[in-house]
C-alpha cells in the first residue's frame, strides 16, 4: 500500500517548482516589451522579430544544426559498432584499453577534452572549422551512443542471432535482419542523445571552432557574458519549445509502440486457430 503523505506531496511540488520555475520565468520574460529585462512593460513579440533579422545568430544556428546532424550520424554508426564489439566481440588484443576509451570520455571534464583535441588539430596542421567540430563531437558522442546501445544488446536473447546463422544467413544478414530491428529503439535514442549533446556543447566547440565557423552556444555564451539580453530570452524560448515538443512526441511514440508490442505478445500467446 503506497502512502502519499503531506511530506511527499510538498517535496514533489517544491522540487518540480525549483526545476521548472526558472525556465518558465525565462519564457515569460521573452515576451517582455522592455529592453530592461527585469521590468515588465507589457506583452510583445518584438525580440522574436529582431532575432529573425540577426544574421549572425541565424548563421550560427545553421552551423550548429549541420554539425549536430553530421556528427550524431557518424557517432551512431561508430558507437553501434563499438557496442557490438564490446558485447559480442569476444576477446581481442587491447580489449581493456578499448572499453576504457569508451567509458573515459563520459567522465572527462570538457575543458580537458577540448584542450587535447585542439592541440592535436594544431599539431597535425588541420584548420579549425566545421570539420574539426564534427570530429570532436563525434568522438565524445559515439561513447554515449555505445553505452546506450550496449545496454540494449546485453539484454537481448543471443539465440535469435544464432538461429539466423544456423539457418544460413551471413553474419551481416543476421545483423541487418535480426539484431538491428531489435536494437533499433536504442540506436535511435543514441542518435537523439548524440544530437542534443552536440547542439548543447559550448566548451569543446569553443576549443575546436575556428574563425570560419561559430556555433550557437558560442554565440549565446559571448552574448550572455555581458548580462541578460531579451534576444537571448527569445532564442532560449524557441529552443525550450523545440525540445519540449520533441521529448513529448518521442515519449508518446515509444509508449504507443510498447503498447503495440504488448498487444502483439498477447496475440502470439493465444493458440493459433
Amino acid at each position: 500500500m503506497k502512502r502519499m503523505t503531506w511530506f511527499n506531496v510538498t517535496s514533489l511540488t517544491l522540487g518540480f517548482a525549483f526545476l521548472y520555475l526558472p525556465m518558465i520565468i525565462l519564457v515569460i520574460y521573452s515576451f517582455n516589451a522592455s529592453k530592461l529585462v527585469t521590468v515588465w512593460a507589457g506583452f510583445s513579440t518584438r525580440w522574436y522579430g529582431e532575432l529573425l533579422q540577426n544574421e549572425a545568430f541565424l548563421n550560427a544556428a545553421w552551423v550548429t544544426i549541420k554539425v549536430a546532424v553530421i556528427s550524431s550520424s557518424i557517432a551512431t554508426v561508430l558507437g553501434t559498432m563499438a557496442a557490438y564489439v564490446l558485447v559480442r566481440g569476444g576477446r581481442f588484443m587491447g580489449r581493456t584499453l578499448f572499453s576504457g576509451m569508451i567509458y573515459a570520455p563520459l567522465v572527462m571534464p570538457e575543458v580537458i577534452t577540448g584542450l587535447s583535441l585542439l592541440l592535436l588539430f594544431i599539431g597535425i596542421g588541420l584548420d579549425r572549422g566545421v570539420l574539426t567540430i564534427v570530429l570532436a563531437h563525434t568522438t565524445f558522442s559515439m561513447c554515449y551512443v555505445s553505452v546506450v546501445v550496449s545496454s540494449r544488446l546485453v539484454s537481448f536473447d543471443r539465440s535469435l542471432e544464432e538461429a539466423a546463422l544456423d539457418l544460413g544467413s551471413s553474419p551481416w544478414e543476421a545483423f541487418r535482419l535480426v539484431t538491428l530491428p531489435i536494437i533499433a529503439p536504442a540506436v535511435i535514442s543514441g542518435w537523439l542523445l548524440a544530437f542534443t549533446l552536440s547542439l548543447d556543447d559550448l566548451v569543446i566547440a569553443s576549443f575546436t571552432a575556428g574563425p570560419s565557423a561559430t556555433t550557437l552556444p558560442i554565440k549565446i555564451f559571448s552574448a550572455v557574458r555581458l548580462g541578460v539580453s531579451p534576444e537571448i530570452n527569445a532564442l532560449s524560448t524557441i529552443m525550450i519549445a523545440i525540445v519540449t515538443v520533441g521529448v513529448i512526441t518521442a515519449s508518446l511514440v515509444s509508449k504507443h509502440s510498447s503498447l503495440r508490442a504488448q498487444e502483439d505478445a498477447r496475440a502470439a500467446e493465444r493458440p493459433a486457430t
Partner: peptide, 20 residues
C-alpha cells in the same frame, strides 16, 4: 519524464535562466 526533460534542454540556457 518531468525529471528528464530539463536534461534535454540546453545546459547553457538553464544556467543563463538564473542570471535574470
Amino acid at each position: 519524464m518531468l525529471v528528464i526533460l530539463p536534461f534535454w534542454t540546453s545546459f547553457l540556457i538553464r544556467v543563463y535562466a538564473w542570471m535574470g
